[in-house]
Design a protein around this nucleic acid. Sequence first.
DNA 1: TGCTTTGTTGCGCAGGATGCAACGTTCGTT
DNA 2: AACGAACGTTGCATCCTGCGCAACAAAGCA
Lengths: 248, 248
Amino acid sequence: MSQSLSRALRLLVELGRQPCSLDDAARVLDVHKSTALRLLRTLEEDRFVYRDPSFRYHLGSQFFALATTALDQRQVRTAAGPHLTALAAATGQTVHLAGYEDGHVVYWDKRDAAHTVRMYSRIGLPASPHTAAVAKVLLADLDEPERRRIARAITYTPHTPRTLTGPAELLAELTAVADRGYAVDHGEHEAFMNCVAAPVRGPDGKVTAAVSISVPDFVLDYERVLALVPELLGATRAISIDCGWSAP
Amino acid sequence: MSQSLSRALRLLVELGRQPCSLDDAARVLDVHKSTALRLLRTLEEDRFVYRDPSFRYHLGSQFFALATTALDQRQVRTAAGPHLTALAAATGQTVHLAGYEDGHVVYWDKRDAAHTVRMYSRIGLPASPHTAAVAKVLLADLDEPERRRIARAITYTPHTPRTLTGPAELLAELTAVADRGYAVDHGEHEAFMNCVAAPVRGPDGKVTAAVSISVPDFVLDYERVLALVPELLGATRAISIDCGWSAP
DNA sequence: TGCTTTGTTGCGCAGGATGCAACGTTCGTT
DNA sequence: AACGAACGTTGCATCCTGCGCAACAAAGCA
């Protein structure tokens, strides 16, 4: 909609991947140097980017400032923090907090397990909607038409033999999840990874976030991961209460 | 330089303070609703902002994604991470990592002490240049003309009776810091807060970052904080070595 | 010295960004 | 039920702003 802004944003994303010089920037955007210069200057004014002494541009400190405040604004995250730490400590496994933002399931926080493979996930990045246990939990709480809409829009990349392959399967899974009260990813994203996830509810009972535990199967087999569910539910229950939810 | 971009950035900063509706946005920028709408739409496309179901705009997940990767790019931060954690654990106090970016001293990382007052500092925000111990360390490493330039440019807000009040005092302090190898903030920003800071050096011996320990005086008095210096120097030495510095 | 690479400035043109007005909805109020 | 206020959305005409160009400056290199 707004050309110059849109270009600037592309530039920021690029800078997130790697710092670059003015010429690099112009090349990435496919515009004249002077155009790139003007954009970068404007970004620099508000400290969204900064130039190091050798004229290379980096993401600026304004970025970190906004990112941290934005994270803090998500009240759920603040409330969940201590419980995530506790859950990670108690189980010794990787724990994620994720939320639903306008069509995407996004990781809001995580606690890495000290001694296992690090999962490929990053705070701020979207989760895979048809495989991640957190995604199933969050999608399961949407109303019927919205679920359908999303189920139809997804591209069902088959990561492993177990990955769900189409809208029908996913929708069935979602109703199952809603009934059961928790979701499972049984090697659907990484063949050797099993996850369980459960919902965090707000004052009105709506699901506002999801917490998951992820375990490589050479650490715990599938059965044992399922055995973590009560502990997980205890944590999500505690977080929900801290968020103002009252048990029915 | 670029009007629309500049407006969008102002909007982002505003959203960092609080989420807002379309009309709010238009009011803040002092433009027509439709203009604000177009900007927000563009921002939304790249997930820099998102609309919640009730049409209010928030900072989007792209921020978290970019901020985390950008922070990881600062190799110092990666290298420092474990040492900061260790130092915070060993001393039980709040620990900061800060760096120099184009005229500003910026907090790059921190470890909060569990049981003390939380300091007003935030990753990404600039530190106060004439009071913060980290700032003294970083400025002390600049060359003479640059130091003078900065010392002249600062506004010497007197936070406490101890705050340095002018360029001459600051410049004297900086040479002292350079000689001594560490810096002190003796109640110069908050009357009840004492900090010590020391430099992290890169392969070429130049100071690339600074680490500080901050302690409220009802936890440890000034003398006892000074007693932490050897431990601090041990940490900065270890980080420097991890960054490729070799002891002279 | 000349050549390349990279950042910077001024200028004129055109297209994109802007404000306007009208419409659609959803509220809450009378 | 009817009304009006508040808010988001759309299409359009205007004009300003963001664009590419070309020339300049400075630094690195053969």
